[in-house]
Design a binder for these strands. Structure first.
Length: 268
DNA sequence: AACAATGTTCAGTC
DNA sequence: GGACTGAACATTGT
């Protein structure tokens, strides 16, 4: 699930429910998710501290603590954050679409990959079926581009137009602009009526400006509505589907290594 | 059973 | 060295 909008939801949940509570214990035994930290290293850095702020840039999220550590959280392909209060009730915050309640049958505890327990009985957990999420101390954010929902038009044009890659591949490059995933990229390119396979050096200034506007619109709209799966193009990504705007056949391709759906009539 | 999956990274190849 | 591509990563769902 997680692209920028989902991560923003997760960040809001942490901000609303996990700040200022003393950390009693941490389960960091999953050495794959917590690599390169050996078991106990993250726990030792967090126990006795409180989280003081929750930040996000693109799909990267991190928490400041009262100690020296910064806690980096990445949801990967399928990760979600669940914060529960002392009574085990999930904290509401940003995830309006499918909250994972404590009683949700979908919430197999075997998929808890990282857990922070607070002294008041509350819990913050990373729930991740595919285990591609990542927890680490002092994450390196230096290679991330500006956030996709915040980047200005001039900087966007300058960063996007460099090189010769297909425009979708460039959108997915987190070092160019941070936060765009496969679904948001398809949605954005569809809104901008651009062929995902087009090389960035073939785009003129007007098209780059339109792409910027489409990206910010799609990103902010998805945040507002609770996720990328609220986009207009979702549900039109199967063989035989049609463009919700013009009715033309949706076409499938592989661009930037990802399955790509676009309207072959309108996206040129 | 084979393949795709909303992400990142690393090994290759220009 | 930079830009770019494709496979690998771990696991689940179709």
């Amino acid at each position: 699930m997680p692209e920028l909008p989902e991560v923003e939801s997760a960040r809001a949940v942490v901000e609303a429910g996990a700040l200022g509570r003393e950390i009693a214990d941490v389960d960091d035994e999953d050495t794959w998710v917590c690599r390169p930290h050996p078991p106990g290293e993250i726990r030792d850095a967090l126990v006795g501290q409180v989280l003081t702020a929750a930040h996000r840039r693109g799909k990267a999220m991190w928490c400041d603590t009262s100690g020296a550590a910064v806690l980096g959280l990445h949801l990967g392909m399928s990760g979600r954050l669940v914060v529960t209060d002392a009574g085990g009730e999930p904290v509401e915050g940003g995830d309006r679409v499918r909250g994972l309640s404590a009683t949700d049958p979908d919430r197999d505890p075997a998929w808890d990959r990282f857990t922070v327990r607070f002294t008041d009985g509350g819990v913050l957990r990373l729930f991740d079926k595919r285990r591609l999420g990542r927890v680490r101390l002092d994450p390196d954010l230096g290679r991330l581009g500006p956030d996709a929902g915040e980047v200005g038009v001039a900087e966007f044009r300058e960063r996007m137009s460099r090189g010769t890659a297909p425009v979708k591949a460039r959108l997915l490059d987190q070092g160019v602009v941070a936060g765009v995933g496969n679904l948001l990229a398809d949605e954005t390119l569809w809104q901008a009526r651009l062929d995902p396979r087009r090389r960035v050096d073939s785009l003129d200034a007007d098209q780059l400006t339109a792409l910027h506007r489409a990206l910010r619109r799609a990103t902010r709209r998805a945040i507002r509505r609770g996720g990328v799966h609220t986009g207009e193009l979702i549900g039109h990504r199967r063989p035989g589907d049609h463009c919700p705007r013009c009715g033309g056949a949706m076409e499938r391709a592989t661009v930037g290594g990802r399955t790509t759906w676009f309207c072959a009539v309108e996206q040129t």
